[in-house]
Design a protein around this nucleic acid. Structure first.
Lengths: 358, 358
DNA sequence: TTGCTCCTCACGTCACGTGAGGTGGC
DNA sequence: TTGCTCCTCACGTCACGTGAGGTGGC
């Protein structure tokens, strides 16, 4: 048996951390002397302690470390948890690079506003690609007059990528378009819905389109015609934080048959908590085999089932925007966002906040 | 003028964050109504607020954000602060990959201790390279009997790199050796000083050496002879956290003349706080032009000067271990570790805790 | 006996978020 | 007048670190 100090030296954890982990139930000593309160650790506790030390060093939250310890015998489960955390770190670094280049642009702008205004960022791409991206996100634009900045689509230009993002707080859609050519620094701007619609009307045709952003103004030019407008001033919410969920349950579905099932299936009428609006909710059930059922199945046995409520109209709109053929749904829990993805296209998708079922 | 809510929407910061930044002096409103306490922000405060939002999203501490805001007009200074932070994030990810592969090894070990024990990690490299790496760190091994785990050298094997680390809490030395071939998973182990010395004695010659580590045992084989011993059981301290300092003041020096100056120069006798040991301290002075002087210079004008006290013996040992020719010293402040680097070799260096001058 | 190790409990840190309870302006 | 926005102040969160004040074991 080891004292707390010996354990600290063996594991690389501090004495105060070990005491804290005892209190938190993460690493409870094998024996605590009832007289003196001295903590005594067994030799088999050294490895778990080293494990905790290593995971804390890489910033894994204690709640997840507790999961790792609990499922230590299940190598696949542990590997999944570690991979999710590593992905989180990788995404964090990618986000940071993006943010920092944005900060550089902000400072450059401040330093030299004139030069900047005369040099908008200009993106050239196939008109149909831009049209497709718009169609993938347009449905998720908010019409709530109290949230004006959500009444637009966030446009992100970086390196050789154009990304459109829309959300109304109940759902979020992201689309990436391949671009031919980018001139100018990476920028972000929020295009109001009406500008987007005017731009979209230009894009039915064959050929190239050009998107230009200079901070205050956004313009789209295609086939000789041009739509122009002012960007919305307010900051778009930080959508990336919403996308940090490693998914366990993935279900592949056929869009046409799912749409049919949704239209025919039962719904519940639920009053939305946030704003009191009444909406029709479809209950999706995934059984232990990963089989998806629309509407509550007959069997009342809810043992291994996962049941998720979604706004039917919103779900249908997400399906329509995702095209035809096959789709992948990611369902992780009754309060985890449901993701609708096109197989093989990781950059264009939408997510939907589920409705909590009473 | 904008209210706090409008400012929040314009900047992407939350209302509570804005209130907190007011209290912390990071973003103080242009005007506060003395009657109502209402905060009013001017239009010129939107950009700084967006800047703060972006930097917080990437995890920059508020203290550094305050620096960025203060030196906003100095583009080079800002760029340096942002680069330091990005490097910190990149290093964090690299560390995390290392840690996680170590965690995987730990779990594999636990799952299958037999297979593991029969498959040590084996590194093959040029004997002289291993000898050089040992010579670069040997001086920094602790002889304090109260800190047994510092009486050894941390060996890290990963991918195609062998790294040796030694520290006695007053200084730290890191050396990397090129390796020819690695078999087995990445490992770390602490080799006691006597094993290291026995191994070093084998390495004077021409040819290949092999280092084998199996968790408990460490052996070095070279030119038909072999040194073997047990690894120290306790965890080596997390040395990487000490290395996260972006340096401003870099001074290139000639080793021979610096050694001469040190030997001849004045010292002060200082009693070390930590253990009460008396030692000779040399005062290094760097003036505004980056000129290094050993001992206190005549001019009493300490305006732009940086003065750092170092243990002379320790500094000499670090210089000897770094070879001949040119060296780069990194001096950042009277309480920031002083780094001794070989130009062009970023992976082998030592750092020295300065002595606080009264 | 000295000096180290251990104990509990309270409070501090960092960057906010979350109410409670109350006021101000359209 | 209603409903939103703003205010302060206190407390919570996360994962510990840091004393204060006191005990235990070689």
């Amino acid at each position: 048996m080891r004292t707390i100090g010996q354990m600290a030296r063996a594991s690389g954890l501090s004495v105060s951390a070990l005491r804290f982990y005892d209190g938190a139930g993460i690493l409870v000593p094998a024996f605590v002397d009832p007289e003196t309160g001295y903590r005594w650790y067994g030799p088999e506790q050294v490895q778990p302690a080293q494990l905790v030390a290593g995971l804390r060093r890489v910033g894994m939250p204690l709640a997840e470390i507790a999961l790792v310890l609990r499922h230590r015998s299940d190598a696949a489960a542990v590997r999944r948890l570690l991979d999710i955390h590593l992905r989180r770190l990788e995404d964090g670094l990618a986000d940071a690079r993006r943010e920092l280049s944005r900060v550089h642009a902000l400072l450059d702008h401040e330093e030299n506003p004139m030069t900047f205004a005369r040099n908008p960022t200009r993106v050239t791409l196939v008109g149909a690609d831009l049209a497709a991206a718009v169609d993938c996100v347009r449905f998720a634009v908010s019409i709530d007059p109290e949230l004006p900045m959500l009444g637009g689509v966030l446009i992100e230009v970086e390196d050789a990528v154009l990304r459109l993002i829309a959300t109304d707080r109940y759902r979020l859609a992201v689309a990436e378009a391949r671009v031919g050519y980018v001139a100018g620094p990476p920028v972000t701007a929020v295009a109001p819905a009406d500008l987007l619609d005017r731009a979209r009307a230009l894009l039915d045709g064959d050929g190239e389109a050009t998107l230009a952003i200079d901070g205050a103004g956004i313009s789209v030019e295609a086939y000789g015609r041009r739509a122009h407008g002012q960007a919305l001033e307010n900051q778009f919410p930080d959508y990336r934080r919403l996308l940090r969920t490693g998914s366990r349950q993935q279900v592949t579905v056929n869009v046409a048959s799912l749409r049919e099932a949704l239209a025919a299936g039962p719904t519940r009428s639920v009053v939305r908590e946030q704003d009191g609006v009444r909406c029709d909710v479809t209950v999706l059930t995934v059984d232990a085999d990963g089989e998806l059922t629309v509407g509550t199945p007959d069997t009342r046995d809810a043992g291994d089932q996962l049941r998720i409520g979604v706004n039917r109209e919103f779900f249908l709109e997400a399906l329509v925007a995702s095209g035809h053929g096959q789709l992948v749904l990611e369902l992780d829990g009754p309060i985890t966002p449901l993701a609708v993805r096109i197989p093989g296209n990781t950059q264009t998708f939408s997510i939907l906040m589920p409705t909590v079922l009473s």
